[in-house]
C-alpha cells in the first residue's frame, strides 16, 4: 500500500497538496477583495495504474474542480500533479496541448458534450487523429467503427448526428471519444447521473469492462454512493475541498471511520425492505459552509453532532493512516466516537 503522496517518478498519478482557488476579484470603487473561493484546498492522493478511484462528496465540495484541475482545464493555484513521472502542473499552457491525449474526460451531460453539428464519424475521427494524424478515409472509418463496437454501438450509424441518438447512446459515443486518443487515464465526471436508471447500469458495466480490458486507470466522480460503491476499487470522500477519508471501497462502505462518511453511507437505501426499516440514518444538519470562508480547524465542526474542542476548531487535523491503506482526517470528535448510539 502506498503512502498518501507516492513517489512521483514511480507511481502512476500523484497529487501533492493541490489547491485550486478562484479569486473573485476586487470591488469596483473601494478595491477590496471580494474573497477567494477555495474549491480545492490541499488534496494529496496517489492513484495506482489500473485502479478505479471513486470520488464522492456533496454538491460544491470541489469534486468537479479537482477533476478539471487534473485534466489541466484549470491550472492549480499551488501544488503538483505528476502523471507517469511527468509533472503536468509544470508544463506551460502552450505545451500541455500535446500531452492531453494521455488523459481524457467523460462529461456528465451527454446532451451537451457532443457537438450537435458534427456526425459521430467527424467527432470520433477528429479525436482519433490527435494520436494518429496520418489516418484518413477508409482507415479512419475502420478505426472509428472499431471504437463504436468497443462501446457497444452499431458502427453503421457513424454518419448520424448526436440528436438522432438516445442519452445512453450519446454517452457511449462520448466514451468512445474519450478512448479515441488512447489515453491511460480517464476521468469520468458523473457520467451516469444524467441517464435513466436502466441505462446507468449498462454504462457502469461498460466503464468497468473497458477499464479492465484496456488497462485504463479511472477517476470516477459521483455524488451517488451506490454507484461509486459498485464501480470503485478505492473511494475518496471529499468535503469542502479536502479529502477527509480514503480507503478501499469495502472499508469505506462497510467500516467508515469519519462521521461524515458514516452519514453518507447511512444514506444509501437498502434493497431489502426489512433491512431498510432497520437502517440507522445519521442525518446531517444544515448545508456545508461556503468554500469562500471555510471554518478553521476540523472542517466538519460546524455541522458535527459532536461538540468539538476549541483546539480542533482552530488547528486542522491531518490525514492519518488509521488502518493499512485507510486514511482519515484525524479529528477525535469526528472519528472513533460511537455515533451509532
Amino acid at each position: 500500500m502506498n503512502a498518501l503522496i507516492g513517489n512521483p517518478q514511480e507511481d502512476f498519478l500523484v497529487l501533492d497538496e493541490v489547491k485550486t482557488h478562484f479569486d473573485m476579484g476586487t470591488t469596483l470603487l473601494t478595491r477590496e477583495s471580494k474573497g477567494v473561493v477555495k474549491a480545492v484546498d490541499g488534496v494529496s492522493l496517489t492513484i495506482n495504474k489500473g485502479e478505479i478511484l471513486g470520488l464522492v462528496g456533496e454538491s460544491g465540495c470541489g469534486k468537479s474542480t479537482l477533476s478539471r484541475t487534473i485534466m489541466q482545464l484549470l491550472r492549480p493555484t499551488s501544488g503538483h500533479i505528476w502523471l507517469k513521472g511527468r509533472e503536468l502542473s509544470a508544463i506551460s499552457d502552450a505545451d500541455i496541448r500535446s500531452e492531453r491525449i494521455n488523459f481524457q474526460m467523460i462529461f456528465q451531460d451527454p446532451y451537451a458534450s457532443l457537438n450537435p453539428r458534427m456526425t459521430v464519424l467527424d467527432t470520433l475521427g477528429e479525436a482519433v487523429r490527435t494520436r494518429h494524424p496520418e489516418l484518413k478515409g477508409d482507415a479512419l472509418r475502420g478505426r472509428v467503427a472499431e471504437l463504436l463496437r468497443t462501446v457497444g454501438m452499431n458502427p453503421f450509424q457513424m454518419k448520424r448526428y448526436p440528436h438522432e441518438f438516445s442519452g445512453g447512446q450519446r454517452q457511449r459515443v462520448a466514451i468512445a471519444r474519450a478512448l479515441a486518443p488512447e489515453p491511460e487515464l480517464i476521468i469520468a465526471d458523473e457520467p451516469v447521473s444524467a441517464l435513466d436508471v436502466s441505462i446507468q447500469s449498462q454504462i457502469l458495466n461498460l466503464l468497468k469492462r473497458l477499464t479492465r480490458e484496456l488497462g485504463l486507470t479511472m477517476i470516477f466522480i459521483s455524488h451517488d454512493l451506490s454507484v461509486v460503491r459498485y464501480i470503485s476499487d478505492r473511494i475518496a470522500v471529499m468535503y469542502l475541498g479536502k479529502i477527509i477519508e480514503l480507503g478501499d471501497a469495502e472499508a469505506i462502505v462497510d467500516h467508515p471511520l469519519h462521521i461524515y462518511t458514516k452519514a453518507l453511507m447511512s444514506a444509501i437505501p437498502e434493497p431489502d425492505p426489512n433491512a431498510e426499516r432497520n437502517r440507522h440514518r445519521i442525518v446531517l444538519e444544515g448545508d456545508p459552509p461556503s468554500p469562500m470562508s471555510p471554518p478553521d480547524g476540523c472542517k466538519f465542526w460546524p455541522r458535527s453532532p459532536v461538540e468539538h474542542s476549541e483546539e480542533l476548531k482552530t488547528v486542522e487535523p491531518p490525514l492519518v493512516e488509521m488502518q493499512p491503506g485507510h486514511w482519515v482526517s484525524n479529528c477525535p470528535f469526528c472519528v472513533g466516537t460511537d455515533h451509532q448510539a
Binding site: T119, R141, R143, G152, Y161
Partner: peptide, 29 residues
Amino acid sequence: MTDHSETAVLGKDSAPVIAEEELVEGSSL
C-alpha cells in the same frame, strides 16, 4: 438498444473495412 454480446474490445478484432455506401446517412441540423 445495443447488445452487449456484440461488443468487441479495442484492438483485439480486426475490423472489416466499412464501405461508405453501407453507412446509415444521418440528418444534420
